[in-house]
């Protein structure tokens, strides 16, 4: 039996819109999930059910209202709810990768550098980081003539592949995948499936949202259908 890498317990999250007469928008209520190392769990359910909210709470972009989020970081479980910012940053730097649907564009930074940056942040020396970044871009079929260009000029599919390369290059032990294949053609979808399987093989724990059924079936060990029972009252 593999060790637990991610443990979500009683997670609740809602939003208050102050400008709209303090309107309460509950999204998640008492959501729990445990993911083992080497396991990939797919979140499923109708849109608005809180799938992305789970990922964003885990990554720290959303601040949960209640519950506990524990992840295995540097060999020990740490609690992310209420964690100090430096700890959240350390977890992001060394442990937790996040593939969002959209690439956060950074003007003027070339694609190779965009991919190498998380590696540099994690302390990998420049040469090695760029080599690894190049290998990842190559696998995702970004031709090397584009590596020196800022991705702002790329097509949507190219941008998403740069984004994938950036999230997958550091080999994080935990990965959050938010529709990683949304804008990809069949060939590149197959590459991403392969990369996710490799990550699982090396023991990464993953939670993903996959609208593409064949991709989901190819990578997920189990599928968690989210429904009204997770919704807040």
């Amino acid at each position: 039996m593999s060790e637990t890498a991610i443990e979500i317990d009683g997670l609740s999250k809602g939003f208050v819109r102050h400008a709209a007469g303090e309107r309460q928008l509950p999204v998640l209520g008492g959501f729990s999930l445990a993911v083992a190392a080497g396991e990939c769990v797919a979140l499923a359910g109708p849109s608005g059910v809180g799938k992305s909210t789970v990922l964003r709470c885990l990554y720290g972009s959303y601040r949960p209202d209640a519950g506990s989020l524990r992840v295995r970081h540097d060999g020990a479980p740490v609690e992310l709810v209420g964690a100090p910012p430096w700890l959240v940053r350390a977890v992001r730097r060394r442990t937790l990768g996040y593939v969002s649907q959209f690439l956060r564009l950074i003007p003027r930074v070339p694609a190779l550098r965009v991919v190498a940056e998380p590696l540099l942040d994690a302390g990998v020396i420049e040469d090695a980081a760029e080599r690894r970044a190049g290998a990842m871009l190559e696998r995702l079929n970004i031709p090397s003539r584009l590596w020196d260009l800022p991705p702002a000029t790329f097509s949507g599919g190219e941008q998403q592949r740069v984004n994938l390369a950036r999230a997958l290059a550091p080999a994080y032990p935990l990965l959050l995948l938010d529709e990683p294949t949304a804008a990809l053609d069949a060939g590149n979808r197959a590459v991403v499936v392969e990369l996710i399987r490799e990550a699982r093989q090396r023991g990464a724990a993953m939670i993903g949202i996959f609208h593409d059924r064949p991709v989901r079936d190819a990578v997920a060990d189990r599928v968690l259908e989210m429904g009204a029972h997770e919704r807040a009252a």
């Binding site: 939003f15 208050v16 819109r17 102050h18 400008a19 964003r56 990554y59 720290g60 972009s61 959303y62 601040r63 910012p85 959240v88 940053r89 564009l105």
Partner: peptide
């Protein structure tokens, strides 16, 4: 106060929400 993505994606205070709502989508 918070990590940049926390405040920009999940602003809590009324004033932060107003500020965030005023930026153009990238």
């Amino acid at each position: 106060e918070g990590l940049t993505d926390q405040v920009l994606e999940d602003p809590q205070h009324a004033h932060s929400q107003r500020l965030v709502a005023s930026i153009l989508p990238v």
